[in-house]
Design a protein around this nucleic acid. Sequence first.
DNA 1: CCGAAATGGGACCGATTTGGTACGGTTTGA
DNA 2: TCAAACCGTACCAAATCGGTCCCATTTCGG
Lengths: 168, 168
Amino acid sequence: MIRINRETDYATAILGVMAAEPDERFSASGLAARRGLPGPVVSKILKQLVRGGLLRSHRGAKGGYSLARDAGAISIAEVIMAMEGPIALTDCIEGGGEACQFHAHCVLSTNWSRINDAIYRALQDVSIKDMIEPLTDDHPGLRNLGRHVRDSLGGSAGQAKAFRFDHG
Amino acid sequence: MIRINRETDYATAILGVMAAEPDERFSASGLAARRGLPGPVVSKILKQLVRGGLLRSHRGAKGGYSLARDAGAISIAEVIMAMEGPIALTDCIEGGGEACQFHAHCVLSTNWSRINDAIYRALQDVSIKDMIEPLTDDHPGLRNLGRHVRDSLGGSAGQAKAFRFDHG
DNA sequence: CCGAAATGGGACCGATTTGGTACGGTTTGA
DNA sequence: TCAAACCGTACCAAATCGGTCCCATTTCGG
Ligand code: FES
Ligand code: FES
């Protein structure tokens, strides 16, 4: 249904809580209580975000999780990729040509790729910090969403590709 | 995975074939052969597109399907909605507040709504006709993708809502 | 008027994904 | 030493996906 899964939604909510108090450490159970979510679910999400490099974890008693970088530098696109893998609307885009028999001669794939690109950049332009702050004149935030989109589409014809998370 | 399902992808491919020869009638089996897809699958998709009002069907021998309107007036957003229902990234957006307990006081929902809005408009700005024509200077097509997106975000703070197909 | 060629509307099924739980192991601070 | 945390992974039910099958209905053409 062209929808992000529930865990990703939870992830943004959790990151939102954490972004309000950076430099703080949060336990999984504490965050779960704060958001009214089941403990194990929150725990699973946090582990995934650590793997994606968005959070840092601290083991042992008095351990917990903290943001790996500034909330303004964590985009929704990254959250989605950390939770769900590459952003690729179609199999064809993800496979990069292997998946689809007609790829070489198919004009659709390049245009799907552009649409995918547009959506990706839209998601990349929104940070966790943007998400927790209401829109004001001082905080343009989401208002600029789409500018990069337009700019990008004037550029070179993008090869079909999926946007993959850089786990390095 | 923020991905459209396969049938929707097929649907655009099929519509692409039909858009190349408007005013023509196509049988399900003929289209299946043309695209190398299984007959029953194509048939199912076509029925769905008729329900969505994108195609007109003609029953009986020598019947078939034809575009309900000009290919330039059928957007990808409509195709997706016809095949998969409302475009709503999160449950919260689709439910419109019923689904989510915190809705009234949650700043995330309005921002998710904006992102959803941006994606929706991006999809609405691309027509089937755009999809089958390679990008040239004469045919700006996808190049304008994102302009409406930016414009819309300057406007009033959108209520969380899903973009539903108008089956009327 | 009959039969072939089409669509219409479902039911149905296996495979995959999703959403969530459970459990045993490991690290660390007090 | 012990409890508080995280780590990994397996597991499960329910929903969704991708696809097939069947039969009723409509229409054209001979
Ligand atoms: S959709 Fe894969 S090549 Fe056209
Ligand atoms: S996510 Fe539903 S109200 Fe915040």
